[in-house]
Amino acid sequence: MVSECVALITGAAGGIGGAVARRFAAGGVQLALIDRDFPEPVSDALILPADLSDAAQVADAFDAALDRLGRIDMLVNVAGMMIFKPLAEHRADDWQRLLAVNLVAPALLSGRALAAMRPGGAIVNIASVHARRTSPDVASYAASKAALVSLTRSTAIEGKPLGIRCNAILPGAIDTAMLHASPNIAAGKEVIDPADIGRPEDVAELAWFLASDAARFITGEDVVTDGGRMGWL
């Protein structure tokens, strides 16, 4: 990708999303950033406050980025939420709210991206190792991330004739607020060796690679980045 490329990144005020934004900025890409709010100012970026659980706001944010910047070459769907409770305690609105953010928003943005991107465009979805192996009390999160992996494959299939690639990243334990908020860890239901906790920058570097021309022959893949932890579970 050349320097005039535009990347649209969701969840850009969070740990992984912020790291992705910094890495793409370092690569010379112009940024359009979506999140509910940005506690710190972000220079040289188009800031698009939006609630990704609201389909209308999702569409408006994409259209605003395209209108203001004239093109979108990279889409990185980072934003996500997690509900910590047993499956038996999940209510319908829990599922609807979580799936709206974790699955429907990436699907809507990807659909718009397929229609707007030029050949050479790339979509990267941030899923989770929970799509393959999970733990107690996060059934809705795990299901949404498994569905996001499936969406990635479908997007890659539809994008191939258009010259647009789509891949997913499945991070393991990453040092973010979401990880530290987990009651499973606090209660000892899930024990993670500090050596198995990655940095947001680890995910960001992989996202940059998958979105760049260096990965031009890779599409429809889901790549685990967990320091090898899943291999020992």
Rank of each mutant, 00 (worst) to 15 (best):
L98G: 04
E89T: 03
E4A: 02
G70Q: 09
P119S: 11
G172N: 09
V191P: 05
D60E: 15
N125S: 11
G28D: 00
S128D: 08
I47R: 13
E201H: 07
V224Q: 05
G70C: 03
Q30V: 15
E221C: 08
S140N: 06
K189W: 10
L206I: 12
S150M: 07
A13W: 04
Q96N: 13
A127N: 06
L210V: 02
G27Q: 12
S135A: 10
F84Y: 15
A64W: 01
N125I: 01
I174H: 03
G111Y: 01
D73F: 04
C5Q: 14
R71F: 02
M81K: 03
L48E: 13
I72E: 05
V6L: 09
I126S: 10
A142Q: 08
A100N: 05
A61V: 12
D222Q: 05
R199G: 02
I192L: 07
F24P: 04
D193H: 15
K85L: 11
A139K: 07
P106F: 10
D44M: 01
R91W: 00
A173S: 15
A177K: 13
D202Y: 07
M82N: 13
D37Q: 15
E190T: 15
R112F: 05
M81A: 06
D94M: 10
G227I: 05
A107K: 00
A131R: 06
A173F: 14
A187N: 14
R132E: 13
V149D: 00
N125G: 10
D175A: 15
H130F: 06
G27C: 02
D202N: 08
Q96H: 15
M82G: 00
A26N: 09
A88D: 12
A122N: 06
I174Q: 11
I218T: 12
F38P: 03
V138L: 05
G220Y: 04
I16A: 04
A65Y: 06
D54V: 12
A186Q: 11
F24H: 13
G159V: 03
I9C: 06
W232V: 15
L46E: 03
D175G: 02
G11R: 04
P119G: 03
Q96Y: 01
E205T: 07
R132L: 13
P194I: 02
A13Y: 09
D226Y: 03
D196C: 06
L33F: 07
G231Y: 00
G220M: 09
P194W: 04
H180T: 07
R97C: 07
E40Y: 02
P39L: 00
S154G: 14
K145V: 04
D213K: 15
Q30K: 13
R153T: 08
Q30F: 00
D44Y: 02
S140L: 14
T10Y: 07
M230P: 00
I192D: 00
I164P: 07
A64S: 11
K160T: 12
G159F: 03
H90L: 14
A127H: 06
G163S: 01
I185Q: 08
L103R: 00
I169G: 13
L33A: 08
I126Y: 10
N167K: 08
A143N: 06
R22Q: 11
V29H: 09
E158C: 01
I47E: 05
I197T: 05
E40S: 13
D44E: 13
T152W: 01
R216P: 03
